[in-house]
């Protein structure tokens, strides 16, 4: 299937600072695609390029298999960096401009304002809004007229915990309805809970990119314990498919090939006469992974 967005070898620099280095990503249709990276890693720069407000030094991108970019943007609801609205206009009137430019959703304004909880304040001027309300309006504007794709840059900025949970639920719900959602964040939790795919950026380099399951499963660990830790360790050293063995506090940690399951480990130990007192599959959390990847080594 043709990806919704295909990014090819994009580079971008601001003077001497290289913000993106030869980044290529495909965003599959129907995915929740998380772009993850510490502050200043190039997330917003990349979204700015694919939304045409920044100009890449080299490389290209294609929306919907090659639709003209402005037509593509009219089918994408976007929130880039900050909520950008006319300060002297109300939420309702700001959305009229959004709808006029994107040619969708003029009659959809009340619905989205209710959805983001601004219905009661929709006639107040934007400049009277709190940070969280501005962010909500920006999300509302992105949802206007049911776009096919959402591009959300740090969507939970400035929201309270309830607001963050609401947005997470909203993303799940919209994705179930078939929307493709591209979401950039430095909050691992946010990405881990909702994303199907993830790309990790660090100082403009794409470190890793793929479905969350694959990316995370590939480095799972299996933890085992037995009465005799030393014997256990010796036995397991003979098992094929085990890449690394660590021992800590009488617990043996195994880094295995992706094909190795806890069942196989258990069977192997029993066949060698060792009964396990503890067996645990530890999925490496995104946070651990993220720290490992983005730590300076």
């Amino acid at each position: 299937m043709e990806p919704i967005l295909s990014i090819q070898n994009i580079s971008k620099s601001y003077g001497p600072i290289q913000a993106l280095k030869d980044v290529s990503i495909d965003v599959p249709e129907g995915s929740v695609f998380g772009i993850l990276g510490p502050n200043g890693s190039g997330k917003t720069t990349m979204l700015g390029i694919i939304l045409d407000v920044l100009i890449a030094k080299s490389g290209s991108y294609k929306w919907f298999g090659g639709m003209p970019n402005d037509a593509a943007r009219r089918q994408i609801g976007s929130l880039l960096e900050t909520p950008n609205f006319y300060h002297y206009l109300s939420a309702f009137n700001n959305l009229e401009i959004t709808a006029a430019i994107s040619k969708r959703g003029k009659d959809d304004r009340i619905r989205v304002l209710k959805q983001v909880g601004l219905f009661d304040r929709m006639n107040s001027r934007f400049q009277t809004y709190s940070l969280g309300m501005k962010q909500r309006l920006a999300i509302g504007a992105a949802l206007l007229g049911s776009p096919k794709v959402l591009v959300l840059d740090e969507p939970t900025n400035g929201l309270d915990p309830a607001g963050i949970a609401e947005i997470r639920e909203l993303i799940r719900k919209l994705n179930k309805e078939g929307l493709t959602i591209i979401i950039a964040s430095h909050l691992l939790d946010e990405i881990e809970k909702v994303c199907t795919h993830v790309a990790i950026l660090k100082k403009g380099n794409l470190l890793l990119n793929g479905p969350v399951n694959e990316v995370l499963l590939s480095e799972d660990q299996i933890e085992v314990r037995a009465e005799d830790a030393v014997a256990l360790q010796q036995v397991l050293q003979a098992m094929s498919g085990i890449k690394k063995i660590n021992v800590a506090d009488n617990t043996v940690q195994l880094t295995c090939e992706p094909t190795i399951t806890p069942v196989q480990v258990n069977e192997f130990c029993i066949s060698k006469g060792i009964v396990l007192s503890h067996l645990l599959l530890k999925k490496k959390s995104l946070e651990t992974k993220f720290m490992e990847l983005t730590n300076d080594k």
């Binding site: 939304l51 045409d52 407000v53 402005d70 037509a71 943007r73 009219r74 976007s78 880039l80 900050t82 950008n84 609205f85 006319y86 300060h87 959004t98 430019i101 994107s102 040619k103 504007a141």
Partner: peptide, 20 residues
Amino acid sequence: NEYGYRTNRQNIIDGWKRMQ
């Protein structure tokens, strides 16, 4: 104002070409 409010960016993001 468009630069101050960054609505110049938003107009593009929402679907205008720069020349529009």
